[in-house]
Design a protein around this nucleic acid. Sequence first.
DNA 1: GCGGCTATTGGACCTTGGTGAAATGGGTGC
DNA 2: GCACCCATTTCACCAAGGTCCAATAGCCGC
Lengths: 206, 206
Amino acid sequence: MTDEPLVYVLDDEPEILKALTRLLGAAGLKVRGFTSAQEFLAHERHPGPACLVLDLAMPEIDGLEVQERLRRGGVQLPIVFLTGHGSIPLSVRTLKAGAEDFLTKPVNATELLAAIRAALQRASAQQIEYVELETLRQRLASLTPREREVLDHVIAGKLNKRIAADLGTGEQTIKVHRGRLMRKMGVRSVVELARMAERLGRTPMA
Amino acid sequence: MTDEPLVYVLDDEPEILKALTRLLGAAGLKVRGFTSAQEFLAHERHPGPACLVLDLAMPEIDGLEVQERLRRGGVQLPIVFLTGHGSIPLSVRTLKAGAEDFLTKPVNATELLAAIRAALQRASAQQIEYVELETLRQRLASLTPREREVLDHVIAGKLNKRIAADLGTGEQTIKVHRGRLMRKMGVRSVVELARMAERLGRTPMA
DNA sequence: GCGGCTATTGGACCTTGGTGAAATGGGTGC
DNA sequence: GCACCCATTTCACCAAGGTCCAATAGCCGC
């Protein structure tokens, strides 16, 4: 949680990569550079907040595909595109696909640093969100099947009596399940439970 | 609610405006054209879903400023930028500011129509969201000050006893307020109330 | 002032929610 | 088989929520 932020830099030209690494390092950022997309994609993920400075034009796997693969892999890594031969359609496409920024070479150091800081801030927020949701998911997974069923009916706003009828059991039973699932989910009121369900509900995966 | 979608087109060059209007009209879209930003900004808003095809380079008030003024005015109108002399920084800036798309002249008709349809769909979703929130806000406004206070404590998950103590009154009183505010808000369970509060809470204005 | 309105409050009464103790039954490991 | 764990269920009891009825107090228009 207190992991240091990390900036990945992916550019196939070693000199540019070196220059970028030096620039960012001088600004106090921890940097990890790659010259090939395969190498980067195979690399293990940084545990803390991270972002990616990504060159668009690269052999074999270009920046667009790196973005697409990360997305498909469920990796939410804020991306700052950096390219020498960009175009408006490309910038539009990457931004609509969720990129944090799109800069052109030669890049202004201040601009790049600002973009990276914004990306890292977003990464940080995403990570907090992810960790919180993970906790909730774990709690949800600790419920027994029956408790899970009762939970669904509770957050639908039904009365215990009604839930009992729907599940073909007694009202007292529902109360016990209800009490137990509340404790397991770590909430003390239905309101909190509803909020929690709301957060879990509107997030397919994070 | 069943209002026909409308496409605003704002371009200072009359010939281009005319061509765009004809193109969109031929595609079955209802179009309203303007050649000056002042004229457009002064114009009354369409009641149904709408979007704006916006030229970037215009005298006096340019596209960027139109976007900014709409944003400041709280108008959520999806914008498709259309420009002859765009640049990557400009496209990035407008998209980050929430523009739906950024196209360059001469524009491909298919592309433009696709962008407009996407913008109208977004507008439609925004409008549904807005109408629903407006209903909730009206209900919230129909509460008496005391009921509003009780609501705050209820959605904080507090017990009636506790609420009574916090507000310096009796528990029975809270129950009455509670029952009334539930009816006024149109909900039958605390869960629904919590959801409603959640939606109202995370939206400063819409 | 007076009638009418609304907000706030309280009591009596019933319904619903919540908890502790405990029984039943299905698996698992030995 | 036996001991054990876990999920599910039930009972009895108490706490909290919810509603009907009614009183009080302030405010507005006439």
